[in-house]
Simulated scan of single mutants.
Amino acid sequence: MLKKLVALPLIVASFMFMSVAHADHHGMKKDIVDVAVENGSFNTLVAAVQAAGLVDTLKSKGPFTVFAPTDAAFAKLPEGTVAMLLKPENKDKLVAVLTYHVVSGAVMAADVVTMDSAPTVQGQSVAINVDGGNVMINNANVVLPNVKASNGVIHVIDTVLLPQ
């Protein structure tokens, strides 16, 4: 019974996210940025992408794979970290953190589970670990895979990835 009570909100959230992710806009599927904006669970990520000047890049043709941390993931960072990264003088650090969440190409979950690492746009690779049905990117759990966008795919994660 407890498993059902825990699983139900995840299933409902998944369907809510998928309905936004697959929504059409004038006959065109939404790009990665539009999907994130409309979902409402990625306000911090969207603000960071805007502050870093990466909106146009993530709205471009791609394709991209984005490991997208939720607002709750950003909230787990030490107090003041997000505010520090959003300052104009720290734009290079912010760009490094954000591009560490992006892999070139559309890498679907079926492909991710066959990999042990993936090179990011930032230059460093992320580690991929599959244990049963759980997929981890570094120390982040993939909580919702394969959210399709017109220019790639989003895998929702529960922890912000930080490059070394």
Results as ranks from 00 to 15, higher is better:
130 V>L: 04
117 S>N: 14
35 V>A: 14
51 A>P: 10
33 V>A: 05
93 K>E: 09
57 T>A: 12
22 H>N: 15
24 D>H: 11
85 L>D: 12
47 A>E: 08
163 P>V: 01
11 I>G: 08
75 A>Y: 03
121 V>L: 14
84 M>D: 12
71 D>S: 13
82 V>A: 10
67 F>W: 02
58 L>C: 10
59 K>D: 10
14 S>E: 15
10 L>Q: 09
70 T>D: 01
3 K>H: 12
21 A>Y: 07
91 K>G: 06
159 T>F: 06
67 F>S: 02
32 I>R: 08
151 N>E: 02
152 G>M: 03
49 V>M: 11
70 T>P: 07
15 F>H: 09
74 F>S: 04
22 H>Y: 10
55 V>P: 09
45 L>P: 10
119 P>Y: 02
58 L>I: 06
95 V>A: 02
41 S>R: 04
150 S>L: 07
113 V>H: 07
127 A>M: 02
161 L>E: 01
107 V>D: 08
91 K>I: 02
163 P>E: 02
44 T>S: 12
139 N>F: 01
96 A>M: 11
65 T>V: 03
97 V>K: 15
5 L>G: 06
39 N>L: 02
48 A>M: 09
116 D>N: 14
99 T>M: 05
90 N>C: 02
29 K>C: 09
160 V>R: 12
91 K>Q: 13
146 N>E: 00
61 K>R: 11
2 L>I: 00
1 M>Y: 07
16 M>L: 13
156 V>F: 12
152 G>H: 01
105 G>W: 06
106 A>I: 03
153 V>E: 05
59 K>A: 12
72 A>L: 00
